[in-house]
């Protein structure tokens, strides 16, 4: 396994036209994993990615990749791959020509990237003639022309259909075994599906950095589909196809299920109705560092 680099942001403030969007960002990441950067629109996700990628110069603070200052060192920046929300492919070129255009600058083999993203049938089509999903796949391919230490993926699955989104997430999951990936999204379900860590950003500040598995909501709403009425056995409300249980922990939901099954009732489905990350958008959070989260394990 390759040695995984450490990404460190020290008191980083950054923005546009001398207006700060990010305020005193501090964190250090050193584990190969997918770090989902979550936040509402305008929170500063893209600005953070652009600053880490060296596109924007921070107003203050330093960004270090293995101790190398990303802003000052071109060499450090060549260890980072950035996928922006824009496709950034020359529209008048074919997919192959576009990838070759970039490979002449960064190296790598366009054919391998085409194979990785399953673009064989599209390689000779003009980029401007592709559908939105196909364009996104081609744009993602350029990020994987060469192997990098750190990948910054800004909403890579935005506006894509579920099948293409899953394909792209699978590729990202595959490379995340020995790479550090920062993946921005405002889709809570996608975040829990792909991420190991969560970086929550609000109003330009990091409000949480923790393992997603450590994030427990205060209330769980569990939907249960059964063959008969269970409202006399457990405290549940009947809504649509489900009986809804409000519990304070997954264990409590398990006990309720046990009670129902012991009465000989057939349970056909049971699932958590709300995303555990939902509350993070609704309630103010206390700052939690990655170190604390790792110590707690």
């Amino acid at each position: 396994m390759n040695e995984v680099p450490a990404l460190e942001l020290n008191n980083v403030s950054s923005g546009y036209n001398r207006q700060a969007v990010l305020h005193d960002i501090n964190f250090k990441l050193h584990e190969p994993s997918i770090y989902v950067v979550l936040g509402p629109n305008g929170a500063g996700k893209t600005t953070m990615f652009r600053t880490i990628a060296g596109i924007l110069e921070p107003f203050s603070g330093r960004i270090l990749l293995d101790g190398q200052n990303v802003t000052a060192s071109t060499q450090a920046r060549t260890r980072i791959s950035y996928l922006s929300q824009y496709n950034a492919m020359p529209e008048e070129m074919t997919v192959y020509e576009g990838l070759k255009f970039y490979s002449s600058m960064v190296g790598g083999d366009p054919d391998k990237a085409i194979e990785l993203l399953d673009l064989g049938q599209l390689k000779n089509k003009k980029f401007s003639d592709l559908s939105q999903g196909q364009k996104k796949r081609a744009a993602v391919a350029k990020v994987f022309l060469t192997e990098r230490d750190l990948y910054l993926l800004d909403e890579p699955t935005a506006n894509l259909d579920p099948a293409v989104s899953k394909e792209i997430r699978d590729i990202i999951l595959k490379i995340s075994k020995d790479k550090m990936i920062l993946y921005s999204s405002h889709n809570l379900y996608e975040a829990t599906d792909i991420g190991t860590y969560l970086i929550l950003i609000k109003n330009g500040s990091i409000t949480m950095l923790d393992r997603i598995s450590n994030i427990r909501p205060k209330n769980y709403r569990v939907g249960i589909k059964t063959s008969t009425d269970i409202t006399r056995i457990v405290d549940a409300k009947h809504e649509g196809d489900y009986y809804i249980l409000s519990v304070s922990s997954p264990e409590e939901a398990g006990l309720a299920l046990k009670k129902i099954v012991e009465k000989g009732i057939l349970v056909t489905e049971m699932r958590q109705l709300d995303n555990p990350l939902q509350e993070l958008f609704e309630t103010p959070n206390t700052k939690k560092t990655l170190e604390n989260a790792q110590n707690a394990e």
Partner: peptide, 15 residues
Amino acid sequence: YDKNNGVLEYLLSLG
């Protein structure tokens, strides 16, 4: 054109 479709942003990210 390259500025508007993100090519310049990508070139900046390449160092």
